[in-house]
């Protein structure tokens, strides 16, 4: 479904991604783990077209994305719940969700989608007329994910959904991610919380200073010596 081949991305002179290649298949949850500054978010930003790769290709169902501007990539079915959430703070929850469906030419089924999002995130329904900026961190995360789902994407990119949330909320969010996946959504999940990510993902990639150093089934990665030491903190 989504395929990155030897992608190199730079910030000015800084070589942030040094030939990242990865694939996400239909219906999978693939996780990208790594420490701070490994290039996880850069990978997502590159897929989204916010940072242009200097070389390499990004294919979504065989169509090259790497030369398209962000709004066209979004229009082709790549939706992201971005790092820092980037919800519209002065719009209500409902308006935020409506913006999520903006790229869809066909508005039929909007109400069904809304109902689906509310069944996934009942908290959002309670806050429907509240401004995005006045929500708590966990609610903002839910809103960002719900907004991404409103686009009926082919693939959902999640950037650090656990960031800044309490353990209870992290558990809830990951449960919801699993539920979304069960409904057939393909997900690329970027996480610092490697243990949680690996326990719900099908496969995983380990990113270190801009390079993929390891890739395997999630269950195997969890048992991997190096991963256990560096990312799970288990001796």
């Amino acid at each position: 479904m989504l395929e990155l081949k030897d992608v190199h991305t730079y910030y000015g002179n800084i070589h942030a991604l040094k030939g990242v290649s990865l694939t996400v298949n239909q219906g999978e949850i693939v996780t990208l783990i790594g420490s701070n500054g490994a290039g996880k978010s850069t990978t997502l930003r590159t897929i989204q077209g916010i940072n242009r790769p200097r070389s390499g290709t990004i294919l979504l169902e065989g169509v090259a994305l790497e030369k398209l501007p962000p709004h066209e990539i979004a229009g082709r079915g790549v939706a992201q719940s971005p790092e820092g959430r980037l919800i519209f703070p002065r719009m209500t929850v409902l308006e935020n969700l409506e913006m999520g469906a903006y790229a869809r030419k066909n508005k039929t089924g909007f109400d069904d989608d809304l109902a689906r999002v509310f069944s996934l995130f009942p908290r959002l329904k309670e806050r429907i007329t509240q401004k995005g900026g006045t929500l708590s961190g966990g609610e903002q995360q839910m809103l960002a994910m719900g907004r991404a789902l409103m686009a009926r994407p082919r693939i959902l990119l999640l950037d650090e959904p656990s960031m800044g949330l309490s353990p209870l909320l992290v558990e809830l969010i990951f449960e919801i991610i699993q539920n979304i996946n069960k409904e057939g959504m393909t997900i690329l999940l970027v996480e610092q919380n490697a243990l949680m990510a690996l326990s719900i993902a099908n496969r995983g990639y380990v990113l270190q200073t801009g390079e993929i150093i390891l890739s395997d089934a999630a269950a195997k990665l969890k048992e991997n010596e190096m991963v256990r030491k560096s990312y799970l903190g288990i001796e």
């Binding site: 066209e72 703070p89 719009m91 790229a103």
Partner: peptide, 23 residues
């Protein structure tokens, strides 16, 4: 539609472009 795109751009241009709005 255009009006809502304006509001989104005013709020956050990056997020708006991720919604498929051409800034």
């Amino acid at each position: 539609r255009l009006g809502r795109a304006w509001m989104a751009i005013r709020e956050d241009e990056l997020a708006a472009s991720q919604m498929g709005i051409d800034p």
